[in-house]
Design a binder for these strands. Sequence first.
DNA 1: TAAATGTCAAATGTTAACATTTTTGCGTTG
DNA 2: CAACGCAAAAATGTTAACATTTGACATTTA
Lengths: 229, 229
Amino acid sequence: MEDKRPQFVSKRTLREQLADVLREKILRAEFVPGEKINEKEIAEMYQVSRGPVREALRQIEEEGLVTYTSQKGCVVKVLTYEEMSELYLIRSTLEELAVKIFDGKMSREGLYKLQSAVDDIERSAEKKDLYEIIAADERFHSAIVEEAGCERLYHMWKSLQGANTATYHTMKSQGLMPYDVLGRNHQWILDFFKRQADVDTITKEISDHYAVVPKTLHQATRQNESAEE
Amino acid sequence: MEDKRPQFVSKRTLREQLADVLREKILRAEFVPGEKINEKEIAEMYQVSRGPVREALRQIEEEGLVTYTSQKGCVVKVLTYEEMSELYLIRSTLEELAVKIFDGKMSREGLYKLQSAVDDIERSAEKKDLYEIIAADERFHSAIVEEAGCERLYHMWKSLQGANTATYHTMKSQGLMPYDVLGRNHQWILDFFKRQADVDTITKEISDHYAVVPKTLHQATRQNESAEE
DNA sequence: TAAATGTCAAATGTTAACATTTTTGCGTTG
DNA sequence: CAACGCAAAAATGTTAACATTTGACATTTA
């Protein structure tokens, strides 16, 4: 049964809207990792009751953004460098699986989305606008995963986006953001799709693309250790 | 109001307990795919209010067991054969990643868990006790994934358990359960771990192990199609 | 007769108050 | 002055009632 209601009438539940707002706040680093989230505070801020707030927080918990502890409440998820590295390994694996599913052959629209995302990455990297970079980066990689047309795979991949955001924020705070090579690195991958390279070549490139992150984080670890001495 | 709940003191929240109960009901096929789940009914059945019930249902939604639709409510997840096949591909990929992470070298305890699970599979397959088979099968595969020691990977893998259960139930209802080879097939994989085969060999075996499922499901599809004619 | 409309019960969404647990803060004590 | 105890405050867990939406069935109308 199709919903023929005019699109401008918004019937989204409070829970859905709150999930969006809270997600964005975390992705924008207005809530920082480890920060406690007070249900009542959020409820009063948006003039709603605690019910929808609790449900929204449970939802973004599933997305890997916050952690609920029984009787203790909700905090913005804290990731160690090691966990970030592991999550990139999973993300890379899922993305490679997507490429295998569509056999490395992107549709015309897919290629267009990728090029558009690369351009956005380039532009926002010049402005050093982290939020825009993260959004464009997500558009790039999600275009790849979506091409596989497997909803569950996309959902799982997306559930790692919180970790990706946290990693970007960490890199920035450590002065490790490679602004100058971001556009180039993504264009590099896109070009393999454009020239219809075979699956193994492309998955290898994606694997290498992500493998840089743990190395960069490791660099951060060493810097912190030497700073403590 | 007097609390008439069981005498033993349980510190677990109602939400947690309800999630367990509802999960089990679905895994035992007391709730079948497509069945509507009525919040009030569940609440009255367990003498609690709808709040914890809603939260529990949201949790098992995340686990891939039910689907919530705005203003429509909650139904037990329905999977097409195609979706089941895709989910097995993802499950297989994640399990192979786990093996790569621990380089195919299982600990003594890991091997023990695997052997114990295989024995359970054998026993319950003889009795054709589907619920026990599913539980033992999960113990087997989760022992592999847990060995990687990556919590998030385990969590993602586990979120596909609902699909696994649904597939087993589907196979049973179609008379396609291969009771006689279940134990042998799992012992086969375990033996590769025991003789410390290299990673590529093991991941290949796991891949093959799971690849059988889509083929069996495809068989079911053809049977249904010819039955309709 | 069939489509459109109206009505109503039941289901979900939301709220506000109550219950229980955890944390806070402060005064006493050794 | 540190440590302990304990009461008050605050946070989370839970409940029950209220609000809105949905779906089914009855009624009207072409």
